[in-house]
């Protein structure tokens, strides 16, 4: 299972990058994440509840960041054991490109399941993984933008609106 996608986030690259390394934001973005502790350097510990087909399981596992190129790209990977349900592991190669203050986040996701999750849920895994990846980046996008709203009164905020319009207009006329 492999899938690719990209999202446009109305924030500069370093803002997005910081968010990608922030346990709180990752927790908010990972679908079903109940708990997330740790930091980017040492890795995170996460508890995630997910339902794949008929199997609902709580996964405890680690989320690690690797192949880090500061401000540009990394690989985020997670491995969780779901007790009798088996295991799930997956990752995403994430890359950031900034154009005119708007960051494009591109990702390639891969996922694997084992044990009961594989024998009962394998035929559903592609759909589930796509849904989860979409949700993650959707949540991430939402988490990055409003947070800027709340916290950053000046540059970020003022810069964002016109940029969004610009992006929209650019889209319409390109």
């Amino acid at each position: 299972m492999d899938l690719k996608g990209s999202r446009t986030i109305a924030a500069d690259r370093m803002t997005v990058w910081r968010a990608l390394n922030d346990a709180e934001i990752l927790k908010a973005a990972i679908p079903g994440c109940k708990e997330m502790t740790g930091n980017a350097d040492d890795g995170f510990e996460a508890t995630v509840t997910q339902k794949i087909g008929p199997v609902k399981a709580t996964f405890k596992g680690v989320v690690t960041l690797s192949d880090v190129i500061e401000g540009e790209s990394y690989r985020i990977s997670g491995e969780g054991k779901g007790g009798p349900a088996g295991y799930a592991r997956g990752g995403a190669n994430v890359r950031l490109d900034e154009t005119d203050g708007v960051t494009t986040l591109s990702y390639e996701v891969d996922a694997k399941v084992g044990g009961k999750l594989a024998s009962l849920g394998a035929r559903l895994i592609d759909g589930v993984a796509k849904k989860l990846a979409d949700q993650f980046f959707e949540n991430f996008q939402n988490a990055v933008a409003p947070r800027s709203d709340d916290e950053a009164p000046d540059d970020d905020d003022t810069g964002r609106e016109p940029e969004k319009k610009k992006g929209l207009i650019k889209k319409m006329f390109s």
Binding site: G115, S119, L120
Partner: peptide, 10 residues
Amino acid sequence: GQLLSGSYMD
């Protein structure tokens, strides 16, 4: 080596 056909739904 994961068995993908491990139930009567598969």
